[in-house]
Simulated scan of single mutants.
Amino acid sequence: MSDATAIEMLIDPRERPVGSGTVRRLLPWRRRRMVGPFVFADVMGPETMGPGQGMDVDAHPHIGLSTVTYLLAGRAVHRDSTGAVQTIDPRAVNWMTAGGGVTHTERSHPDDRPVDAEMFGLQTWVALPAESENADARFEHSPADEIPSESGDGVSVRLAVGTGFGLAAPIAGSSPLVLAELDLRGGSVRVEPDHAERAVIAMAGDVFVDGHRLDVVQLAVIEPGSRPVVSGTGTAMVLGGEPVGHRHIWWNFVHSDREVIEDAKARWERQDFPLVPDDSEPWVPLPGS
Score class of each variant (00 low, 15 high):
Gly187Arg: 10
Ser156His: 04
Ser226Gly: 09
Gly173Leu: 05
Glu223Phe: 00
Val178Gln: 12
Ser226Pro: 06
Glu181Val: 00
Ser226Val: 07
Gly166Trp: 13
Pro193Ile: 11
Ile222Glu: 03
Ser151Asn: 06
Ile171His: 00
Gly154Leu: 11
Val230His: 02
Gly187His: 14
Val178Phe: 05
Asp206Lys: 04
Ala180Tyr: 01
Glu192Gly: 08
Asp215Phe: 01
Ser231Trp: 05
Gln218Asp: 04
Ala202Ser: 15
Glu192Ala: 15
Met237Ser: 01
Asp206Gly: 06
Ala196Tyr: 10
Val216Thr: 15
Leu214Thr: 02
Asp153Val: 12
His212Phe: 08
Ala172Val: 10
Ser151Phe: 02
Val155Met: 03
Pro228Cys: 07
His212Gly: 00
Val207Asp: 05
Val221Asp: 09
Asp183Glu: 13
Thr235Trp: 01
Val189Asn: 00
Gly164Glu: 11
Ser175Phe: 03
Ile147Gly: 00
Ala196Arg: 15
Gly154Asn: 03
Ala202Asp: 00
Asp210His: 14
Gly187Trp: 10
Arg198Pro: 03
Leu167Trp: 00
Gln218Ala: 11
Gly225His: 10
Val189Gly: 00
Gly234Pro: 09
Leu214Gly: 10
Gly154Ala: 06
Ser149Asp: 07
Ala168Glu: 15
Gly166Lys: 03
Pro170Leu: 05
Ala202Tyr: 01
Thr163Gln: 15
Val161Ser: 01
Val191Ala: 06
Leu184Asp: 12
Leu159Asp: 00
Ser188Pro: 09
Gly211Tyr: 02
Gly205Pro: 06
Ser174Gly: 15
Ala168His: 06
Ala236His: 10
Pro170Cys: 04
Pro176Trp: 09
Val209Gly: 10
Arg227Tyr: 08
Pro224Gly: 07
Val161Leu: 15
Ser175Lys: 01
Arg227Pro: 01
Val157Leu: 08
Gly187Met: 12
Gly166Phe: 09
Leu184Gln: 09
Phe165Asp: 02
Asp210Phe: 14
Met237Glu: 02
Asp194Phe: 05
Arg190Ser: 11
Ile222Lys: 05
Ala180Gln: 03
Val207Met: 07
Ser188Ala: 15
Ser174Arg: 03
His195Ile: 06
Gly187Phe: 10
Leu214Ile: 11
Asp153Pro: 08
Thr163Leu: 09
Ala160Met: 13
Gln218Asn: 04
